[in-house]
């Protein structure tokens, strides 16, 4: 057995005891990242319950959940945002995969994808602040969806960061209420891929595919 290469367990151990790591040992596996995971599952409350329950039972972080029916009414799609290191996130996806009523679990984080969140925000205004608020709304490509003499409700969609920035900009004006939908996300196809007639139909079972990156 070659002496030079450390096992991942040894790297983890070194890091824990504060020993210096060589550049090639910095594999980033212990660094925490935000992950966005798409899950398709049976469209029932029980199935949804099992997914969210998993997060509390296993002590995983859950930043946001968005769920809704797909084109197939018996199938729901859920988008989860979680924070953790590679090991934890691999755990999360495998545990989700293990649930009997989930069909497909995809970590979109490293793949090309689009993500969107919708935010409704009720803000106070006066005749002085009104132009500025509407300006900001335009910059964020938002819409006014409701107005009363003192408040208006604005709607903005975009990636998580954009929503955060928008809320930040509104803070000075007196926010009354914020409602966010949670992230939804989807793979982005970069170019048209013609169907491959030679592709084998009996693809390796997904569980074993997961083995190769373990």
């Amino acid at each position: 057995m070659s002496e030079e290469t450390l096992t991942r367990q040894q790297i983890r151990r070194k890091r824990k005891f504060g020993e210096p790591l060589l550049p090639e040992e910095e594999d980033g596996t212990e660094q925490e990242h935000r992950h966005i995971i798409a899950v398709t599952l049976e469209n029932t409350i029980g199935a949804l319950n099992r997914v969210t329950n998993l997060f509390s039972a296993r002590g995983f972080n859950l930043e946001s959940v968005a769920v809704g029916e797909t084109d197939e009414p018996s199938v729901a799609r859920l988008t989860l945002v979680t924070v953790g290191n590679d090991r934890i996130v691999a755990q999360i996806t495998r545990q989700l995969d293990n649930l009997v009523n989930t069909y497909d679990v995809t970590d979109l984080t490293d793949a090309e994808h689009v993500e969107r969140e919708l935010c409704l925000l009720k803000v106070q205004y006066s005749s002085e602040t009104r132009p500025e608020i509407l300006d900001i709304k335009d910059i964020f490509r938002g819409r006014v969806v409701n107005v009363t003499p003192e408040t208006m409700v604005l709607e903005v969609t975009g990636p998580n960061k954009k929503i955060n920035a928008f809320i930040g900009m509104m803070e000075a004006h007196g926010i009354e209420e914020v409602a966010r939908s949670g992230q939804v996300a989807m793979h982005r196809n970069l170019e048209y891929e013609p169907p491959n007639p030679l592709a084998s139909t009996d693809a390796a079972p997904s569980a074993n595919g997961a083995a190769s990156d373990a």
Partner: peptide, 18 residues
């Protein structure tokens, strides 16, 4: 046989799921 057991407590350098 359970993929979620792999690298749960101790990193696996090679996993044979089955």
């Amino acid at each position: 046989i359970d993929p979620s057991c792999i690298s749960k407590n101790v990193y696996a350098d090679c996993a044979l799921i089955g």
